[in-house]
């Protein structure tokens, strides 16, 4: 690890300024992803700005939305009464991720920005467009059991990157239509969740639309009627402490047995959390039924395409969508 200078500002302004003048500087929050990357030499900041002393830990109900500070810990959010009462989907997703210790360290902001777990990204002996743009994507013809089935473009040549976003939180936030609140030297910027994470396109090195030096200060979740019929469903290679192969965030607003609103997002299938707008639309107005869920799953999978080792996801994803919807609806 390269030596770095360490700073610990106590105001948001100081923190932003500390990064403004230094191209190779980084914020550090929980450190659970950044330190991993630094140890493996993938990130080598010359200046490390510790933001843990900033007043960004609050979780509050505001008019029309819940605001979660960027530094609220994953465990605090998961156990918070407001979250339990209004957005249990979020709590479920957080509890499905990482471990008790990691959730006590990981922050909201850091979780949004965690990098992919594609093994080719982590080992510098392999080419990787995300780490080293232009070098090629090793996963494409390599071991791609964990990789994407959506969201890579083949229009202008082979996909640039088929890594997936590993976060569970992101899948839930995507379904809940959250907004990421960001500050930079100019002031505040609000980024709708759908626009926050990117598809690889011609810049596979960029995971999000956050600009260099911008500080995430909060995540806002609009009030929504998803207090009850929600389910976060995660499939993994072992029973716990593993990243998902596929995960589904499902939220339903039911009127008797009819679906008023539906939200669906998939994890583990694309470079970003994969919101299923079409399938949601299809569900609205339908009665809760296996048929409706099957149709939704079919719609969801329309554009999916698999590689050598991840064809199972073409079956696992729709199965999981149906299961998540079934569990959310409370029928078994």
């Amino acid at each position: 690890m390269k030596p770095f200078h360490y700073l610990r500002p106590t105001t948001v302004k100081d923190a932003i300024n500390a990064l403004a003048s230094a191209p190779n500087a980084r914020f550090i929050a929980g450190g659970t992803n950044l330190i991993d990357l630094m140890k493996r030499g993938l990130v080598a900041p010359e200046k490390l700005v510790d933001i843990n002393s900033l007043p960004l830990k609050k979780i509050e109900q505001k008019a029309g939305f819940v605001r979660i500070g960027a530094l609220a810990l994953n465990s605090s959010v998961a156990d918070h009464t407001i979250i339990a009462a209004k957005h249990p989907l979020l709590a479920q997703a957080l509890k499905a991720g990482a471990s008790g210790q990691l959730r006590n360290m990981a922050t909201m902001g850091g979780n949004l920005l965690q990098r992919t777990r594609c093994p080719y990204f982590y080992d510098t002996a392999f080419p990787c467009n995300k780490r080293n743009p232009g070098s090629g994507c090793s996963a494409l013809e390599g071991i791609n059991r964990l990789h994407a089935i959506f969201g890579f473009s083949e229009k202008t040549g082979p996909p640039t990157c088929i890594a997936v976003n590993p976060s569970d939180l992101n899948v839930a936030l995507s379904a809940l239509d959250a907004t990421v609140v960001v500050q930079n030297t100019q002031g505040e910027r609000r980024i709708p969740f759908a626009d926050f994470h990117r598809l690889p396109g011609d810049r596979p090195d960029r995971d999000t639309t956050l600009e260099a030096g911008e500080l995430i200060v909060a995540v806002d979740i609009p009030d929504a009627p998803f207090a009850r019929n929600v389910h976060y469903f995660k499939v993994r290679d072992r029973a716990s402490y593993a990243f998902g192969l596929v995960s589904v965030a499902a939220a339903l607003d039911l009127d008797n047995n009819r679906i008023k609103t539906a939200r669906l997002a998939l994890g583990g299938v694309a470079h970003k959390p994969w919101r299923l707008f079409e399938a949601e639309k299809m569900l609205v107005g339908q009665p809760v039924s296996e048929t409706a869920f099957r149709q939704a799953a079919e719609v969801a999978m329309r554009d999916a395409k698999a590689f050598e080792h991840n064809a199972y996801k073409l079956k696992l994803a729709p199965n999981s969508i149906r299961q998540a919807l079934t569990l959310a609806a409370g029928i078994s």
Binding site: R8, I28, G31, I35, N52, G100, Q101
Partner: peptide, 28 residues
Amino acid sequence: DLGQCGACTVHVDGQRVLSCLSFAVMQQ
């Protein structure tokens, strides 16, 4: 040393955390 095993678990202000994924200077 990468947060993947839990062997380094300690309590910081009473909470369990992984000491391998935190810089000492952050514990001021």
